[in-house]
């Protein structure tokens, strides 16, 4: 059988349907940025070490830099651009602005997508490394320690961590979990 180095993929991105032929080497991050012009997801390291490229893939937070575009075929992707309607902000976005949960803003799309995915994981009762050893049936309460551990895959060199944690906790409290 002849092998090809390009593949046709179909995926939904921020509710829009796309079908395109991609170089098998292309990552989901580069597909979003180069093919679709969605430059919200950022490339901070390209090796899974910073979290700036975080997007939601079938509602789970993932690193788009280590996801091959071909492997994301037939999934639904949400980037930071798709979290709210044009001209509007989702509560977590509004909280980031109001509480100054960023400075340069480069890690911010990743932090926000990660927070959205993380809050859903928590709402689904997922444990974290700080609580998993406790009672296995307990859903851990979301406090600062929990948020910090769960968000640790998103580095911020500007050091906006304290206000990011505040924004996440405030959003969680106001929304009863949903971001």
């Amino acid at each position: 059988m002849i092998d090809h180095t390009r593949t046709d993929v179909s995926l939904r991105v921020n509710e829009a349907f796309h079908r395109l032929s991609v170089d098998n080497r292309r990552t989901l991050l580069d597909l979003l940025r180069e093919d679709l012009g969605l430059t919200g997801p950022k490339k901070g390291c390209d090796h899974g070490q910073c979290g700036a490229c975080t997007v939601l893939c079938d509602d789970r937070r993932v690193l788009s830099c280590l996801t091959l575009a071909v492997a994301a075929d037939a999934t639904a992707v949400t980037t930071v651009e798709g979290l709210a309607a044009e001209g509007e902000l989702r509560p977590i976005q509004e909280a980031f602005v109001r509480l100054d949960g960023f400075q340069c803003g480069f890690c911010t799309p990743g932090q926000i997508c990660s927070a959205v995915g993380m809050l859903a994981e928590h709402a689904a009762g997922w444990p974290s490394a700080v609580t998993a050893g406790d009672a296995p049936d307990r859903v851990p309460e979301l406090d600062e320690t929990e948020v910090r551990e769960r968000m640790s895959g998103n580095l911020c060199r500007c050091g906006a961590y304290p206000s990011i944690v505040r924004a996440v906790l405030e959003t969680a409290a106001r929304q009863g979990g949903a971001a």
Binding site: L38, T39, G40, P41, K42, T79, V80, E81, L83, A84, L89, Q93, F96, V97, R98, D100, F102, G105, F106, T108, P109, I112
Partner: peptide, 16 residues
Amino acid sequence: RPRIEGPLKVTGAARY
């Protein structure tokens, strides 16, 4: 006051 460019940065619209 929050940052002027805040909404651009939290929606991915700020271009680097």
